[in-house]
């Protein structure tokens, strides 16, 4: 282990726990989609979650901002427990940003309006201030010149970068990425990953569901493998990729790495 890795590990061990998922179960009708999932995420930690489709990885991160409801167990985000209390849910959603596979930009609003909407209506910031913040983040994702266009006029990669900027405008403490590059043309994947890497470098707590193994190797502090609703294996990237323990992990890695 390199000294940098060692230092990073100690730093994370000392950091407070930001997300705590304990004994979480969820069912879709009869289907047991999450089975006794336990996960603690430290502040500033970067986690990549992978696994075959239907393994519950998207469902897990969608439970963290309550886009999905869990039926058993506890989820505590930044000190607030997710319950049916709408107040708690709104508090948590303000702290947690999310980026979707299909971007989900608002097509009837300009890029700038997409970014200022939540700061103005949720945080009640004045319009001028919200616009200044939005421009700052649009510069950060390197598309300030597209601010007055509508999402439909942008490429997929640009749209996803706008989606990231839109989330950042709420100054979240945690960012969730749900397969952010899966809907992109191959030549646009890099521009989105670059933005995610720079976010990671700034110390953002990140949970990414992704199949970009290169990103996992270089950025993740921990890689989690899920299958059939359970966390099968989790480890630092080097160990995870070079020395997987479970048969299912080995099978999965052989399938995605050798094609």
């Amino acid at each position: 282990m390199t000294p940098q890795r060692q230092a990073r590990r100690e730093q994370l061990a000392a950091a407070p726990i930001n997300i705590e998922v304990s004994h979480v179960h969820k069912w879709y009708g009869e289907f047991h989609v999450l089975r006794d999932v336990n996960l603690a995420v430290s502040k500033g930690e970067r986690i990549v979650i992978c696994g075959p489709s239907g393994s519950g990885k998207s469902t897990l991160i969608r439970c963290i901002n309550r886009l999905e409801e869990h039926q058993k167990g506890n989820i505590i985000v930044d000190g607030t427990e997710l319950t049916n209390d709408v107040k708690n849910i709104e508090v948590i959603r303000r702290e947690v940003g999310m980026v979707f596979q299909s971007f989900n930009l608002f097509p009837h609003l300009t890029v700038l309006e997409n970014c200022t909407l939540a700061p103005i209506w949720v945080k009640k910031l004045p319009k001028k201030e919200a616009e200044a913040i939005a421009m700052k983040y649009l510069e950060r994702v390197r598309i300030p010149d597209q601010a007055l266009k509508y999402p439909g006029q942008l490429s997929g990669g640009q749209q996803q970068r706008v989606a990231i900027a839109r989330s950042l405008c709420m100054s979240p403490k945690i960012m969730l990425f749900d397969e952010p590059t899966s809907a992109l043309d191959p030549e646009m994947v890099k521009e989105v990953l670059d933005v995610m890497i720079s976010l990671a470098e700034d110390g953002m707590t990140m949970l990414c569901v992704t199949h970009e193994m290169g990103f996992a190797k270089s950025v993740a502090d921990r890689v989690i493998f899920m299958d059939r609703g359970e966390i099968i294996e989790q480890n630092v990237p080097d160990e995870f990729f070079n020395n997987p323990q479970s048969e299912r992990t080995k099978l999965f890695l052989s399938q995605i790495l050798n094609h």
């Binding site: 959603r93 608002f106 709420m170």
Partner: peptide, 15 residues
């Protein structure tokens, strides 16, 4: 209206 629009609005904390 696609479900994603509702989810994006929810995720941003809009009531």
């Amino acid at each position: 209206i696609p479900k994603g629009q509702y989810e994006a609005a929810d995720a941003l904390g809009l009531g």
